[in-house]
């Protein structure tokens, strides 16, 4: 199999009026891997994905699938599958008809509709109107829609929303199977790191439209160095003493210090010597959620 970049986003920007929804974002996704696209609500995830899919026109930069813009793909559903909002179905149409309409437009055989329903566990509901579906069933139907053409690239926007724990577990298995057994490139967005933590190989983190991290999950946890976190209204006064001990001090703001290169006892001694009132002094765990929060916190 040819190794090529399945998804490549380069310097992508999109503004809605004064809001810079996506601001100079670049990242890529390789075949056979699952990449989590993470960021709090309003970070710009959906806008990025919609630019990639040709639904929203970017102000600048490029977003390519298999080296081409989505709108230039001759048989898009055979190359890219996408799951966007959970509600994009006509409530009066049956699940099977929904898929068949798309099969017709995409030139796929109508039998694919039934296969896809089988694959996402909706065979029994095939002839029911989508209006009566639960959110979880809609998500399954959306996944069935996305995989109709056996695409090599799968893009999912918050697919876990509305799924119960069993549904999320099923989704994880489904995505792992597609990526690791079939070599599909998967890009999955979420505002909850924990949802995708166990599934993804790589993470891309975005906040306020800007990319704040791209790499493997291991890189995110920072292979090891765990800082001591100090919270104090008088944090400023501690810094010179700590630096005299050879510590490296990060100041993320709000009276918080993250102290690297010394142990907690050294920090405690500095606190005692400087007679500073601290409200928190703790060795940080490599808590992914905390790192995520830290990376994406409001400036």
């Amino acid at each position: 199999m040819r190794v090529m970049t399945a998804i490549e986003i380069r310097n992508l920007s999109k503004a809605f009026g004064p809001v810079k929804a996506v601001d100079d974002v670049s990242f890529s996704v390789e075949a056979g891997t699952i990449t989590g696209y993470l960021g709090p609500n309003g970070a710009g995830k959906t806008t990025t994905l919609r630019c990639l899919l040709g639904l929203v026109s970017a102000d600048g930069g490029t977003a390519l699938v298999d080296g081409r813009p989505y709108t230039a793909l001759e048989h898009p559903l055979a190359e890219v599958g996408a799951v966007l909002e959970a509600t994009s179905f006509h409530p009066g149409r049956t699940a099977r008809d929904h898929l068949r309409v798309i099969c017709t437009a995409a030139g796929l055989p109508a039998s694919r509709a039934d296969e896809a329903l089988e694959q996402v566990g909706l065979a029994d509901a095939a002839r029911k109107r989508v209006g009566g579906f639960s959110l979880g069933m809609r998500q399954r139907l959306a996944l069935g829609t996305a995989t109709l053409g056996h695409p090599r690239v799968l893009i999912l926007d918050e697919p876990a929303n509305g799924l119960d724990p069993a549904g999320i577990e099923w989704l994880r298995g489904f995505l792992r199977h597609l990526a690791h057994d079939r070599g599909v490139a998967v890009l999955v967005s979420s505002h909850v790191l924990a949802e995708v933590q166990q599934t993804v190989d790589n993470v891309v983190i975005i906040a306020r439209g800007r990319l704040v991290h791209q790499g493997s999950l291991d890189e995110l946890t920072g292979n090891g160095e765990r800082p001591v976190r100090v919270h104090s209204a008088e944090a400023d006064r501690l810094v010179p003493a700590l630096e005299a001990e050879g510590a490296r001090v990060e100041r993320p703001g709000d009276g918080v210090l993250r102290v690297y290169g010394v142990d907690a006892e050294t920090v405690g001694r500095a606190v005692l010597d400087e007679r500073v009132l601290v409200t928190e002094l703790v060795r940080e765990r490599s808590d992914l959620q905390a790192i995520f929060m830290e990376l994406t916190r409001e400036a």
Binding site: L53, L55, T71, L73, P76, S88, H90, I102, A106, T145
Partner: peptide, 17 residues
């Protein structure tokens, strides 16, 4: 109807032109 039920997204995904 395509806008009301957002099926326009699916429609344009299968036919981006």
């Amino acid at each position: 109807g395509e806008y009301r039920y957002q099926t326009i997204t699916t429609t344009f995904l299968s036919t981006p032109r």
